[in-house]
């Protein structure tokens, strides 16, 4: 299986690549349009700040390509947030796959949220073999609210989405590549699922 991790200079792509390796899956880091279009799975990672990440995507023309992809696409952390319409972070227009506005956690909460939080209301085969209230690793200051495409939620001051899915697009707020055994289960489910 060909897996491309989109390389747009945003943060920590290496740990995703290493995690895929552990699952026996070779992947390449690339920003090449043909390679992305031809791949079986696309992973859209991201660590960093929304407006500068969108700028980078635009500078290499990937902002039009990503929403049109037909194969399964997995956005992780900032990657998930960028698949929404808009982010409060840097007042940024994003890719618009999901009709949602990304918001900042309340100022009364310690931000960023760092650490292991439970995920619940799990839907779809992405969470096969993962039980309700399993812990996953999160590291973020902004969140996607609950929307109709929410397939897992967590609580930090309020309930918000930790996974969303629409057609071939899946977004994860938690880091499956860093969430121990069950993070690897989720990543593997994404690889084996047809959609």
């Amino acid at each position: 299986m060909d897996v491309v991790i989109i390389d747009y200079g945003a943060g920590n792509t290496q740990s995703v690549k290493i995690a895929l390796n552990r699952l026996g899956c070779n992947s390449i880091l690339s920003s090449d349009k043909d390679k992305i279009l031809k791949s079986d799975r696309v992973i859209f990672p991201g660590v960093g700040e929304a407006s500068s990440a969108m700028k980078k995507l635009k500078s290499i023309q990937l902002h039009r390509l990503i929403p049109d992809l037909k194969q399964p696409v997995l956005g992780i952390c900032l990657g998930m947030q960028l698949m929404c319409d808009y982010s409060e972070e840097g007042d940024t227009e994003c890719l618009g796959v999901f009709k949602a506005s990304v918001k900042r956690f309340d100022n009364k909460l310690k931000t960023p949220q760092v650490g292991w939080n439970t995920i619940s209301s799990l839907k779809t085969s992405l969470f096969n073999d993962v039980k309700e209230n399993e812990y996953m690793y999160l590291l973020h200051s902004y969140y996607v609210p609950i929307i109709k495409e929410t397939i897992s939620c967590s609580s930090y001051g309020l309930q918000y989405s930790t996974a969303i899915k629409k057609n071939n697009f899946t977004g994860l707020q938690f880091h499956p590549e860093k969430s121990s055994e069950f993070g690897e289960v989720v990543l593997n489910n994404f690889l084996i699922n047809k959609k």
Binding site: G11, G48, E49, S52, L139, H140, S141
Partner: peptide
Amino acid sequence: ASKYGSQC
């Protein structure tokens, strides 16, 4: 913080 984000 501006290059990698505070979380890093």
